[in-house]
Amino acid sequence: MRLYELASLIRSKNAGPFTLTIDVMFADPAGYARVRDNGLLSPQNMARLYGVPQERITVHNYDPAQAIKVSMPRPAASGSREDHDVYGGQFHGPLVLLAVP
Score class of each variant (00 low, 15 high):
12 S>W: 06
37 D>Y: 04
16 G>K: 00
75 P>I: 03
73 P>H: 01
80 S>Y: 08
17 P>Q: 02
32 Y>G: 03
33 A>N: 10
45 N>T: 09
32 Y>M: 05
74 R>A: 05
55 E>Q: 15
21 T>F: 10
5 E>K: 05
84 H>C: 13
31 G>Q: 07
47 A>E: 11
68 I>A: 08
13 K>G: 15
1 M>S: 12
25 M>C: 12
67 A>H: 09
98 L>P: 07
26 F>C: 02
37 D>I: 13
69 K>A: 15
18 F>K: 10
41 L>D: 01
71 S>P: 00
59 V>H: 03
41 L>I: 09
26 F>W: 05
2 R>L: 04
101 P>I: 14
47 A>V: 11
44 Q>A: 15
80 S>R: 06
42 S>H: 07
7 A>W: 00
25 M>D: 13
9 L>W: 01
13 K>V: 13
23 D>E: 12
34 R>D: 12
51 G>T: 10
98 L>V: 08
94 P>E: 06
68 I>E: 06
68 I>W: 02
15 A>K: 00
29 P>W: 09
83 D>R: 04
48 R>A: 15
17 P>A: 12
20 L>F: 12
46 M>T: 07
12 S>C: 08
26 F>P: 01
9 L>E: 13
57 I>T: 08
29 P>N: 01
99 A>H: 06
90 Q>Y: 10
27 A>F: 07
22 I>Q: 02
90 Q>G: 05
17 P>Y: 01
5 E>V: 00
83 D>A: 08
96 V>C: 00
66 Q>L: 14
8 S>K: 06
40 L>F: 09
37 D>G: 09
96 V>Y: 00
20 L>H: 06
16 G>E: 09
43 P>K: 06
69 K>R: 15
54 Q>K: 10
9 L>R: 10
6 L>M: 07
8 S>H: 01
83 D>M: 03
68 I>T: 13
11 R>G: 11
67 A>V: 13
23 D>A: 04
38 N>G: 11
30 A>R: 08
44 Q>L: 14
52 V>F: 06
3 L>K: 00
33 A>C: 04
34 R>L: 15
46 M>K: 04
9 L>Q: 13
56 R>V: 09
96 V>G: 00
92 H>M: 03
84 H>M: 14
90 Q>S: 12
46 M>D: 04
73 P>V: 03
60 H>D: 12
10 I>L: 05
22 I>P: 01
7 A>G: 00
63 D>T: 12
66 Q>K: 09
15 A>W: 02
37 D>A: 10
45 N>S: 13
80 S>K: 02
12 S>P: 07
74 R>I: 09
55 E>D: 15
8 S>Y: 00
82 E>R: 10
2 R>C: 01
19 T>D: 15
33 A>T: 13
89 G>T: 10
78 S>G: 13
53 P>L: 07
64 P>V: 09
17 P>F: 01
8 S>G: 04
27 A>I: 03
28 D>A: 01
75 P>M: 09
7 A>P: 01
75 P>C: 08
13 K>S: 15
63 D>F: 01
91 F>W: 14
27 A>L: 10
2 R>Y: 06
13 K>A: 15
28 D>L: 02
38 N>F: 04
19 T>N: 14
34 R>Q: 15
55 E>A: 14
88 G>M: 07
74 R>E: 05
50 Y>Q: 10
20 L>G: 09
85 D>E: 08
101 P>S: 10
61 N>Q: 12
70 V>A: 07
36 R>D: 11
80 S>N: 09
